[in-house]
Design a protein around this nucleic acid. Sequence first.
DNA 1: TAATATTCGTGAATGAATTCACGACGTGCC
DNA 2: GGCACGTCGTGAATTCATTCACGAATATTA
Lengths: 230, 230
Amino acid sequence: MNSRRAKSDGDGDRPVISRRRISESTIRRLSIYYRALSALEGEGYHTVSSKDLARREKLTPAQVRKDLSFFGSFGTRGLGYPTKELKTRIAAILGVDQTWNVGLIGAGNIGSALVSYKEFQKQGFVINAIFDNDQRKIGSNHKGIVISDIKDLAAEVKKRNIQIVVIAVPAAAAQQACDVAVEAGIKAILNFAPINLKVPNGVTLRTENMAMEIEYLSFTLTNHMRPIPT
Amino acid sequence: MNSRRAKSDGDGDRPVISRRRISESTIRRLSIYYRALSALEGEGYHTVSSKDLARREKLTPAQVRKDLSFFGSFGTRGLGYPTKELKTRIAAILGVDQTWNVGLIGAGNIGSALVSYKEFQKQGFVINAIFDNDQRKIGSNHKGIVISDIKDLAAEVKKRNIQIVVIAVPAAAAQQACDVAVEAGIKAILNFAPINLKVPNGVTLRTENMAMEIEYLSFTLTNHMRPIPT
DNA sequence: TAATATTCGTGAATGAATTCACGACGTGCC
DNA sequence: GGCACGTCGTGAATTCATTCACGAATATTA
Ligand SMILES: NC(=O)c1ccc[n+]([C@@H]2O[C@H](COP(=O)([O-])OP(=O)(O)OC[C@H]3O[C@@H](n4cnc5c(N)ncnc54)[C@H](O)[C@@H]3O)[C@@H](O)[C@H]2O)c1
Ligand SMILES: NC(=O)c1ccc[n+]([C@@H]2O[C@H](COP(=O)([O-])OP(=O)(O)OC[C@H]3O[C@@H](n4cnc5c(N)ncnc54)[C@H](O)[C@@H]3O)[C@@H](O)[C@H]2O)c1
């Protein structure tokens, strides 16, 4: 197991990743493992093998082991992975072992749904500012949060130490909202508008494109295809 | 393991789509092209080259051409693709040149947002039934649609010719809702609950997992990584 | 303690997706 | 028409991701 990681084995710290490029798919699967481990912990399992995890999430054992091996060596041969500890380790890798302050731009349909969504908060993503440009909404109270003018975004970001911004405005306004967030120093943006936003280097953008998902469904229905497992 | 060769047997599907396996990424990019072409058409472009499309959506020209080539040969050498016609062709491939009847299970936060979402309807995805198991909601009118008891799902699916079901119930109830839909003969499901649903062969399931996206963001923030372009 | 059964971790092999590179074909201009 | 140029379509090369397969380490049982 003499891996090429030069780092001496004193790890009790946050793992140093970088070096090797981790694929997007691996990171997404980490989220999957994290949720599975939470469930398994609740079901009383103290250890779990790559085989168990794989079967549960429709993956292969080798994939599970390979993914985890990018970040360290967490298992015990002959036994498997310690459920609770692996969950903790993955939480640290994903950064969900801490609280993130989230700002929401756009207090409309989807924005309201997100504010009411408890799971995000439980995972450590706390919406503590909402921005809009509609004067009728600004100043009103939305689930305990007063809606701010988007013009005050930079100031609020600083004041509340906001690290992530969610964009939930109409597509036509999304690039503008994005620019405001970037200008305020935001490095991570989750976008719900169905367009390709431009962000400078160093800013991570993820776009949640529901149209794409439902069009995938109509494609399979139209072409009588076998589904590709998610 | 995949016994579905499905090749070489002359049984022709309706469209000219090659029987080669089209990758999921290609289909997702088709959605991207479709939206880009709609925009380009609005901007008055009569033709568009793979280079233009690629630059606009941060892809490579070769990728665009390769994707399209799986479905036919739509371009003119030396000139590019005819915007309007290519859009029409992609619409037919994706199946967005027709209307799909969509049933929504779960009239909560996210469900309400979806019902209010005009874009889906414009794209031909029309929600014309809503199901819930909360007696206080059943029978009430939600944006012009009367909420039905989930027990009546099979009957409504038949009556309204529903082809796609959207699941927007709490994770704990999602598998049950899914089973009801499958039992009613539904072949395409869009799931918003953050769990891995089990569906039989022949049913396409897509899961919109927002937790995964936001965890990806916290991963990049935590590890000071370069974003991977979406 | 020894023998057997598991399961991890990881290089190597395989498979899939993307990019390259070039011939074919079309346009536009003189 | 002939030439210069642009762009498609596509097999080949390349890059990237997944799976295989096996040695090493640990657990379990007698
Ligand atoms: N509603 C859905 O279910 C759904 C689903 C998928 C994607 N989306 C996308 O999410 C986005 C929002 O959708 P919605 O249905 O919530 O829309 P909405 O119209 O209900 O809400 C948009 C909000 O953004 C505000 N806004 C507009 N321009 C702004 C600006 N420049 N700065 C700040 N705030 C501004 C509006 O005042 C409004 O409150 C859209 O891009 C939509 O395509 C929505
Ligand atoms: N709210 C969000 O922004 C958001 C974001 C991402 C994912 N989600 C997911 O979407 C799902 C719904 O979230 P929500 O916030 O809308 O929840 P919600 O509690 O507001 O709504 C859920 C609805 O489902 C109904 N329901 C419950 N059990 C049912 C059953 N067995 N059959 C039929 N109907 C049933 C409830 O009566 C309620 O109307 C959850 O799985 C959640 O994790 C929500």
